[in-house]
Design a protein around this nucleic acid. Structure first.
Lengths: 228, 228
DNA sequence: TGATGTGAACCCATTCACAGCC
DNA sequence: GGCTGTGAATGGGTTCACATCA
């Protein structure tokens, strides 16, 4: 969406690099040192040509006739994604979702750490989630600047999402992950990604509906939704 | 991937329909009765041609020279997405994420209801989250069949995701929303969508890195603060 | 020999531009 | 005149096929 003049890697490929990353990380743990595009594709659930094309955007790190060195490739992907650093992240909204994110080990395992959680609800302020004390939304800017935060997560209800986004932008944060089902208006240059959990269910249910329309179900069963 | 039952809507368009749906729903609440593709596009953060093309897949529900009737369009999108029905959903994994999902109002607001949560951890079984009592994973099939569930959510740690997927498939569930950062192997015909929260952060941090690259800030200082 | 890296072909999605209807 | 609906053009991403090189 934002136009980087030097955006080398296509967006679709960027979205797959972390998948390869995770697999390579597992492989290192198992002591595997070499891997072919064919094998990596199998593990990632994509095809080999795509793997090779994706990796070629990083540079020519493979060896023809042999494959890729697992550790070296791992390092190169990490470097490209900026994950040889640890990114401080701040969460806006300490409700169910905000708490779950703060407690989610997968986030810290992959190079991020939650340095702050803010909310406007007085009853939540002072509580500790994921090892971080919830502070008042007014402190957002102070926290962001003192910790050098450049990534913010919006985990508020939809009606407060825009407000949260504006506060994040004011605090100098340039990349926002938005979990609220709302369209955010932000200044140009700010990166926004939206994740809408219920939307994923809605899309899935569409395909489920297509599935049962086709009637080709073998023994699946009677799974028919009840009417509302 | 699968077949073409009939006039199938392109995947990209299906992903935007719920966005329009939500906006139209809000508009109904505000008493708005008519809307143009231009206005809807503005609210959805896309361009007008895309809105018209997307809506044209549903049928010709607009009026030239006028626009779309909000309520009628709302109904048509709901029907196409299968949301005039209520879908029973089962969650595998009662950890932080599973609990957050069960408690997440947005899910029930949009036509889904959680009819079961299962886990293997004895200490979690019997606890109540989101108004549903956590039951043992062994009961999955029984719950799924008695409630007519066709959509399952995997909210387990990555190492248990494949196992969870297999249990869901055995229980006759044909659509899976996977929150575990793992690639699932499932039989043909099973719909799987993956949502990886940490992956979203990794992608975002890549663009954040690009952002500061183009700006020349090596330091994590504040970047383009803009007035709200 | 065997697997990478990559132009070229292909396919899907987006955007354009305008015909058609209100 | 205004706005929808849609063929046509454009662009991005995926797949193919093979030249290339350890």
């Amino acid at each position: 969406m934002t136009d980087s003049p030097r955006r080398r890697i296509p967006e679709a490929a960027v979205g797959r690099l972390p998948v390869y990353l995770r697999i390579l990380s597992d492989l290192v743990g198992e002591g595997t040192t070499q891997i072919s595009s064919e094998q990596l594709a199998e593990l990632a659930g994509v095809n080999a040509a795509k793997v090779r094309k994706d990796l070629s955007y990083l540079g020519t790190y493979g060896t023809r006739g042999v494959g890729y060195d697992v550790q070296y490739l791992l390092y190169q992907i990490q470097r490209e994604l900026g994950l040889n650093q640890s990114w401080p992240v701040i969460i806006v909204g300490a409700g169910n979702l905000g708490q779950a994110l703060a407690n989610y080990a997968g986030i810290t395992e992959r190079g991020f750490h939650i340095v702050g959680i803010v909310d406007k609800d007085e009853s939540k302020i002072g509580t500790v989630v994921g090892g971080v004390r919830v502070r008042h939304a007014d402190d957002l800017q102070q926290i962001a600047q003192s910790k050098g935060v450049s990534i913010g997560i919006i985990a508020t209800p939809a009606p407060h999402a825009q407000e949260a986004a504006e506060a994040l932008v004011r605090a100098g944060i340039g990349s926002i992950l938005n979990f609220a089902p709302a369209v955010l208006a932000v200044p140009k240059g700010v990166n926004v990604r939206k994740v809408d959990l219920a939307l994923e269910l809605q899309i899935l249910s569409y395909y489920e509906q297509c599935r049962s329309d086709t009637r080709g179900d073998s023994q699946g069963g009677q799974s028919t939704p009840v009417s509302a």
